[in-house]
């Protein structure tokens, strides 16, 4: 028979008990030898883990400087020996980029992230985690991985074919990335739960371009869809329509 306090020893040592419980536990430990021994063992283990695991792996100096460079504010990385004309040219670029940022609506942050995901998928040797042309295989794969479900269209009489799917994270939220092929091109369709980060994109179907990628986005029954590809705008729109008609 185990003491009813035993289950709370972990939380006690983690400082997670309420003030009253904490006090009661301290008192209990003075009288129950079994619990006191268990608490001693747990404390010993907790401390040993901290000692054995923290700082076990240390980033190399090269890696540290690589990260340092990646996050350093831009102008600091300019070498001091840069000739004047190059500086002037850089200044113009900086101003141009600055203007671009100024003029760029915030909604692009999410789209940039989605474009990056699409591009990195195309570049990957293993672009999808579930490989199937069958929508009845791809859709169930996402079950239990996503807190929502979505429908995939019948592609039998279209130019499109399904390649597969994978999990995608945008703005720290999970979603589905579905990869389709049309002729030599690949198209990603992303499905997320509609959230504040996407709200600025608007609910109505919208066509846009980002770095020469064609893009179509809309919301439907609480889900945000983004279709993106280097295929023609007409292809992107056609797939978007198929997705919208899926049931």
């Amino acid at each position: 028979m185990t003491c009813e306090w035993r289950d709370k020893i972990g939380a006690y040592l983690d400082n997670e008990l309420s003030e009253a419980d904490d006090l009661a536990m301290s008192r209990h430990l003075r009288t129950c030898q079994d619990c006191a021994m268990a608490a001693l063992g747990s404390r010993k283990l907790k401390v040993s883990i901290k000692r054995a695991a923290s700082g076990r792996f240390v980033p190399s100096p090269e890696f540290r400087s690589r990260i340092g460079k990646a996050v350093a504010p831009r102008s600091r990385s300019l070498p001091s020996w840069l000739p004047g004309f190059a500086l002037a040219a850089t200044a113009i670029i900086v101003v141009a980029v600055g203007l671009g940022l100024l003029l760029r609506p915030r909604q692009h942050d999410v789209l940039v992230e989605i474009t990056d995901l699409h591009v990195s998928t195309l570049a990957s040797a293993n672009p999808v985690d579930v490989i199937s042309t069958d929508r009845h295989t791809v859709k169930p794969w996402f079950q239990g991985k996503l807190p929502f479900t979505f429908d995939l269209p019948e592609l039998q009489n279209s130019e499109f074919h399904l390649i597969g799917g994978r999990m995608a994270y945008v703005a720290q939220g999970p979603g589905a990335q579905l990869l389709f092929g049309v002729r030599k091109h690949q198209i990603s369709a992303f499905v997320f739960q509609e959230r504040e980060s996407f709200a600025r994109l608007g609910a109505a179907p919208k066509t846009s371009q980002n770095l020469a990628f064609n893009l179509e986005t809309w919301t439907d029954r609480g889900l945000r869809y983004v279709v993106i590809s280097d295929a023609s705008a007409a292809d992107v729109l056609a797939l978007a329509k198929l997705l919208r008609s899926a049931e």
Partner: peptide, 28 residues
């Protein structure tokens, strides 16, 4: 957008001290 530089500096100041523990966690 004069904030960008300031943002980048803030980020650097907040994020660099976390490099060692984040790397340790990632390796584990």
């Amino acid at each position: 957008m004069h904030d960008d530089r300031g943002n980048a500096e803030t980020f650097e100041a907040l994020a660099m001290p976390l490099l060692a523990p984040l790397y340790n966690f990632a390796h584990w």
